[in-house]
Write a protein that binds this DNA or RNA. Structure first.
Length: 603
DNA sequence: GTGAAGGGCCAC
DNA sequence: AAACGTGGCCCTTCAC
């Protein structure tokens, strides 16, 4: 395919090009960089195209790149940000009136935000659109070349993607590749959008597109981790792990068959096979798995089992939450810049990695290591029982809704209703029982699992669940409807219209059961994700010109860092954004947000 | 040596 | 036999 493109290296040409592009409502947008990490590499090219006419802007001509005499990358960033010749490009990119179509726009957006110093407005992400369309089913890949093949039936050559973009003179082939990637985007969008409309995914795609900028900024902002505190905590854990390890080793030694004159051979305490073997030799009735909840009942009778559980806890802590996380601190900022995948799960939840900031242990020893730098504060807000409120709203159960409207302790209210007693008489055990019931129901809990979890008999569990569902009849009805309709629809949706295609093997009971549980859970978990994403977009607009920076999100929680003096004001903005987002999707049940200002990410 | 699978466990 | 949803990371084991 021959395409028309123009290579731009000076201010006058850029000004003209931007004037021409500003008249177009929709532009393909792409960048080429020397690295994957914007804190480590150079933003070399920015490409914009209406599909037929493509501009390839080489930022080397505008102060970009590393200089022998300058101060390297930071010098390049400063030069680009302060070069007035780039203002027309910044205006074009930040304009919300001109749609910018990009594939995995978070990447391009982060580079533009950091190196050019402006936001990208009006984003349309073909990657997220493609993920929404496939809706969790099928093996289809979502690379740009895959989409071009799938939606346009053509082949896109990506070999130049990994070429050397730091060369002084880029080759004609490189420039042409860069131009093509941007030029093809309008055409890809046309086809993708047809499918989006066909599957009624316009609203959820808008939600996702509007969430990209906040996430891009959050990744650039990073979360400050106090490395000294973390190391101190790690040293404490390693000391107790080592002690528990020696003790466990000694206790297990009696179970090793071939004890020698030099003492029993050492067992690898992290090997399930070796530990299981040693336990069996000691006469411990080891269950089919050695997971903590399986071993727990044996801990009282067998001290070696208790010691194993103790060791496992310390091992997990020192291995998963040890030295490794410190390696993710970016030297340029001294902060952790994790990778957030916006549609991490088909439900719409985020996934986070490198490192996963959504699985930091809840214990204060760990959370206090994530803190605000001096002079700053953290504003931490989380939705109170958001999934149960969503279930109440979706099922339209009067008693369920009334329980939330009363503002009373929800689990205690459930306990009172299920046990037929007054709220004041609910014991701690009864409340905890009701709590497990409430959470279990969100996951499609069955009577047998509930019996095992609580230690009551199967018959008792069935009777309890019957009483529970009699208390909330319309919730029962909604859950049954989901179970039934998934068998014919093979799909479920959230409040934003997010779709999950649910495949199952009709001849396999467990496969059907899994599909039914998923059909109950997905609309609840997914609507919670919808609400969080909506809140991020609303928050972003509120804090754009303040000292506040988004630094972390954990499913129903948002963490913002700001100047100490602004904390109360930011707390109010955060709460109001989250409440509004909740009210946009949940109308019959009050939304509750708990906000606190703290110097550390702990209570 | 590298990578996938399985077991286990952290978060919501 | 399986047994309540969504993820990521660590370790061991085993195949290539």
């Amino acid at each position: 395919m021959e395409i028309y493109f123009q290579s731009i290296t000076d201010g006058d040409s850029l000004k003209k090009a931007c004037e021409e592009l500003a008249a177009k409502p929709v532009l393909g947008f792409d960048v080429e960089t020397t690295e994957l990490d914007p804190y480590k590499g150079e933003l070399r090219l920015v490409q914009l195209s209406d599909g037929t006419r493509t501009k390839v802007i080489d930022l080397r001509g505008f102060g970009g790149g590393r200089f022998e005499s300058g101060d390297g990358l930071s010098g390049s960033v400063k030069a680009l940000r302060s070069n007035p010749e780039l203002d027309p490009l910044r205006d074009l990119l930040s304009s919300k009136k001109i749609t910018k179509i990009a594939h995995n726009a978070k990447f391009d957006t982060k580079w533009v935000r950091h190196h050019l110093g402006c936001e990208v407005g009006g984003i349309y992400d073909t990657y997220l659109a493609s993920v929404l369309i496939s809706a969790g089913e099928g093996e289809r890949r979502h690379g740009l070349a895959d989409l071009v093949q799938f939606f346009l039936g053509r082949t896109l050559d990506k070999t130049e993607q990994v070429s050397d973009w730091s060369a002084n003179e880029l080759s004609a082939s490189q420039i042409e590749y860069a131009a093509k990637d941007a030029a093809i985007m309008p055409e890809v969008r046309e086809k993708v959008q047809e499918r989006i409309v066909n599957d009624s995914l316009e609203q959820v795609l808008k939600l996702e597109n509007e969430c990209i900028m906040p996430i891009a900024e959050m990744e650039l902002n990073g979360f400050y981790l106090d490395a000294e505190r973390w190391r101190a905590q790690l040293n404490r854990v390693m000391a107790v792990q080592s002690k528990a390890g020696v003790e466990l080793q000694a206790m297990l030694a009696a179970g090793v068959a071939q004890a020698s004159l030099f003492g029993a051979p050492q067992i690898n305490l992290d090997s399930v096979d070796q530990v299981t073997n040693a336990l069996m030799n000691l006469g411990v009735p080891v269950p089919s798995s050695t997971r903590a909840w399986e071993l727990q009942p044996l801990a009282d009778q067998y001290p070696v089992v208790a010691k194993l559980l103790e060791y496992r806890g310390f091992a997990k802590a020192s291995q998963s939450f040890g030295e490794n996380i410190l390696e993710f601190i970016e030297p340029a900022t001294g902060r952790i810049h994790a990778d957030f995948r916006q549609i991490g799960a088909p439900t719409g939840r985020f996934a986070c990695s490198k490192p996963n900031l959504q699985q930091i242990p809840h214990e204060e020893e760990y959370r206090r290591c994530f803190r605000a730098p001096d002079g700053r504060m953290l504003v931490i807000a989380d939705y109170s029982q958001i999934e149960l409120r969503i279930l109440a709203d979706i099922s339209d159960d009067a008693n369920f809704i009334a329980a939330f409207e009363s503002g009373r302790d929800f689990h205690a209210t459930t306990a009172a209703q299920v046990f037929g007693i007054s709220a004041e008489d609910v014991t701690t055990d009864q409340r905890s029982f009701a709590k497990r019931l409430n959470f279990g129901v969100v996951y499609g809990l069955g009577a047998s699992r509930f019996a095992m979890m609580t230690g009551i008999s199967q018959t008792e569990a069935e009777a309890t669940l019957r009483r529970y569902f009699a208390t909330y009849p319309k919730m029962d009805e909604w859950l049954r409807t989901q179970s039934k309709s998934v068998l014919t629809d093979r799909s479920a949706r959230t409040r934003s219209g997010r779709l999950a295609r649910i495949g199952f093997d009709a001849g396999d009971r467990s496969s059907i059961g899994a599909a039914q549980r998923y059909a109950k859970n997905m609309p609840i978990q997914g609507t919670s994700a919808d609400i969080l994403k909506r809140a991020l977009r609303l928050l972003h607009e509120e804090i754009v010109s303040t000292s506040a920076k988004l630094v972390n999100i954990v499913h129903d929680e948002i963490v913002v860092e700001c100047d100490s003096a602004d904390a109360d004001q930011i707390a109010a903005k955060l709460e109001s954004a989250m409440l509004q987002a909740g009210n946009d999707y949940v109308t019959k049940v009050p939304i509750k947000v708990d906000v606190r200002v703290a110097s550390e990410w702990s209570k």
